[in-house]
C-alpha cells in the first residue's frame, strides 16, 4: 500500500535513457556520468579559443532561478549559457516575488508563460529542484544548482572532471571528503558520483556532530580522526565550514576545528605523495585549510573553478538535447 515513490534517477531521464533534467548524481549510470565528463572535456577545448561560443542553445531561453543568493555559481551558469549561445534571464528571487507571498508554483507558472526552455534552480529546500522538475510543463529542462542539503550535482561533476583530468581514471582512487558533511549538498553528490564512477574507496572525515545519520549507507566510510582518514588517500576534498556552525552546539570553536580537521602541511603529508587537494570554494583560509596548502603544488582549486564552465555547458547541452529528442518524438 505504498505510494509510487518517484525514483530520482527516472525523473531526470527520457524514456530512452537520455538526460532531460539534471537534479542529482544519485541513480545515474556510469555511462551517463562518463558521457557528461566526456562532453565537458570536449568543451574545455573551445574555452581556450578567441571565439568561445558554440551555437548549441541558439534561440533557447535559460532562466537562472536563484532562490538563494549565490554570485559564483550563478555567474558560471550565466557564462556557460552565453557560451552555448542561449538567451539568459537572471532572476534574483530571494529578494523579489516570494518575499511578496507568491508561491513557488506561481513563480514557475509565470516564468513558463514567458516560454522559457530551461530553469537553473538554486533553492534552500531539499528536493526543490525535484519538485520543480515534476511540475514544469514538458520540454522545460531543470538543472539543479543546489537544493538545501540534498544535492549540488554540477559542482560534484566538475570535481569529477578535475579528478579525472588529474588522475586519469577513478578505479584505484581513495577519496576523502573532510569537514561539514552534515550540511553539505556537494558531499552527497560527490559520494554518489565517486561510487558510480568506480572509486576504490570514499571516506568522510569530521566530528560526529557534522556527520549525518547513517552516512555510510550512502557509500562512504566515516572517520572522526583525520590522521587515520587521510592515510593512503589520493584525493582530498575539503568543504567550507560556515561560521554559524559554532552557534548551534555543533562545534566548540574554530581553533579546535582547525586543529582537528584543518588541512595543514603536516596532515597533507599523511596522504599519498601525489594526492591532490580540492575545495568547492569559497575557501576559509586558516579555518579549514592552511594557505600554504591551498596555494601549494598539490592544490587544484583553481582548476576546479575553470572546469565549472565547461561542466555546466555540458549538462545544459545534454539536458536540452534530451528534451528536444522527447519533443521530436511527440511531433512524429
Amino acid at each position: 500500500m505504498t505510494m509510487n515513490p518517484l525514483d530520482p534517477s527516472q525523473i531526470q531521464l527520457t524514456e530512452d535513457g537520455r538526460l532531460k533534467h539534471f537534479l542529482t548524481t544519485e541513480g545515474l549510470s556510469k555511462e551517463i556520468l562518463t558521457e557528461i565528463l566526456d562532453t565537458a572535456d570536449s568543451f574545455i577545448g573551445t574555452q581556450a579559443r578567441s571565439v568561445k561560443t558554440v551555437p548549441l542553445l541558439r534561440g533557447k531561453t535559460v532562466v537562472n532561478l536563484f532562490f538563494e543568493n549565490s554570485t559564483r555559481t550563478r555567474s558560471t551558469f550565466e557564462l556557460a549559457a552565453k557560451r552555448l549561445s542561449a538567451n539568459i534571464l537572471n532572476l534574483d528571487i530571494a529578494r523579489s516575488a516570494t518575499s511578496k507571498g507568491e508561491t513557488l508554483m506561481d513563480t514557475l507558472w509565470n516564468l513558463e508563460s514567458m516560454y522559457s526552455d530551461m530553469f537553473v534552480v538554486r533553492h534552500a529546500d531539499s528536493g526543490a529542484a525535484h519538485f520543480i522538475a515534476q511540475h514544469v510543463t514538458p520540454n522545460v529542462a531543470v538543472i539543479n544548482a543546489g537544493d538545501g542539503r540534498h544535492a549540488h550535482p554540477t559542482q560534484a561533476m566538475l570535481d569529477m572532471l578535475t579528478i579525472r583530468r588529474e588522475k586519469g581514471s577513478f578505479e584505484n582512487l581513495t577519496v576523502a571528503i573532510v569537514g561539514d558533511i552534515l550540511h553539505s549538498r556537494v558531499a552527497r553528490s560527490q559520494i554518489y558520483a565517486l561510487n558510480t564512477l568506480g572509486a576504490k574507496e570514499v571516506r568522510v572525515i569530521g566530528p560526529n556532530t557534522l556527520l549525518p545519520q547513517e552516512i555510510e549507507s550512502l557509500g562512504a566510510k566515516a572517520y572522526n580522526n583525520m590522521n587515520q582518514g587521510l592515510k593512503g588517500v589520493d584525493v582530498i576534498i575539503m568543504l567550507r565550514l560556515q561560521k554559524e556552525r559554532m552557534q548551534n552546539a555543533l562545534l566548540p570553536s574554530e581553533a579546535e576545528f582547525y586543529r582537528l580537521y584543518g588541512l595543514s602541511t603536516d596532515k597533507l603529508a599523511l596522504a599519498n605523495p601525489d594526492a591532490i587537494v580540492m575545495h568547492p570554494g569559497p575557501i576559509n583560509r586558516g579555518v579549514e585549510i592552511e594557505s600554504a596548502v591551498a596555494d601549494g603544488p598539490q592544490s587544484v582549486i583553481l582548476k576546479q573553478v575553470s572546469n565549472g564552465i565547461p561542466m555546466r555547458m555540458a549538462v545544459m547541452a545534454m539536458a536540452m538535447g534530451g528534451q528536444q529528442s522527447g519533443q521530436n518524438k511527440e511531433e512524429v
Binding site: 531539499s126 549538498r185 552527497r188 549507507s217
Partner: peptide, 15 residues
C-alpha cells in the same frame, strides 16, 4: 525521521 533516508534526501531528521 532521522535515518538513512533523511541523510539521502538532505533533511534534518527528528530522532
Amino acid at each position: 525521521h532521522e535515518s538513512a533516508t533523511s541523510t539521502q534526501l538532505g533533511f534534518a531528521g527528528i530522532g
